[in-house]
Amino acid sequence: MIKKIIYGLLSIVVSIFFINTITFFLIEIIPGESYDLSYIRSEAVVKNIEEKYELNKPIGYRYVKMLKNTYTFDFGNSFLSEGRSVNSIIKEHFPISAKLGALTIIYSFILGVIIGIVTSRYKILKKISFIYFVIMISIPNFILAAILQYFLCVKLNIFPIIWNDNILNYILPCITLSSYPIVFIAKLTCESIEEVNKMDFVLAAKARGIDKKTILFRYVLKNSITSTLSYLGTIIANLLVGSFVVESIFNIPGLGKYFVTYVMNKDYPVVMGLTLFYSILLIVSTYLIDLIVFIKDNKGKKYEILE
């Protein structure tokens, strides 16, 4: 157990180091400078700018400094917006994205599990849900966002267009982001319920005369939700990519929207910092989910040994 935790932490640190290095050198190789110094006539001004942003320092020095900054969680200042640090950008915009993400995960888990249970019980619904699944997978989230906004916000005026941090603002982005996770979770739940239903302990419970509802909620669902939980990492990765576009369409001041703008404007310290932030988020969450699944599996093994 302790060995597993230590190994996991080490692999996190090593992979963050590699991501750091690769992103740094990719940005260095990309042609074009972040500053156009040619139109400034005075040499003193050029020198001052270069000194302030350490553009004249050798690449090795900047690389080591960047590594040091990463492990102390200090990503430096933005080029574009004077005096704003990357940390303050994250602090201001990330809570909104996190709120949206958490709402989406809860919503899609509830709906996905319900659809999964229903489709596993009735054969006719399974055929209908197959069509629904294929159609929902085929609609890209940016199209769904644009069309929902056009019909529900502009034409029918049900939801507000302007961001007001209202609960109404979260509904449409939530529906858009959860279109794919719902299908994913529903499919997994349906499959795992059918698998667990074939196991011996369900048969034993049926033989004892326990009614169907108790078997479903107490015996089957407990097992199938754990197997769905191990795919949470994939869902989170999917949400991060989706949030870039959905946030810019619905005008949500979250981190995804700003990431796209900073990438387009070549604001390298911010891009570097946000890339690292996203990768750390992804790696740590995958690691935590792995650990939870591992602990659950181990619990079962302990009992087996005792018996």
Binding site: S11, V14, S15, F18, I19, I22, T23, L26, I27, I29, I30, P31, G32, V241, F244, F259, V260, V263, V271, T275, Y278, S279, L282, I283
Partner: peptide, 25 residues
Amino acid sequence: VMIMNIIGSIPDFLIAIFLMMFFNN
């Protein structure tokens, strides 16, 4: 496996931008 994990965690954006700049130049 580790090489795959590392490449997998770089955002698609950066790869896209880098390759586009590279081939345009």
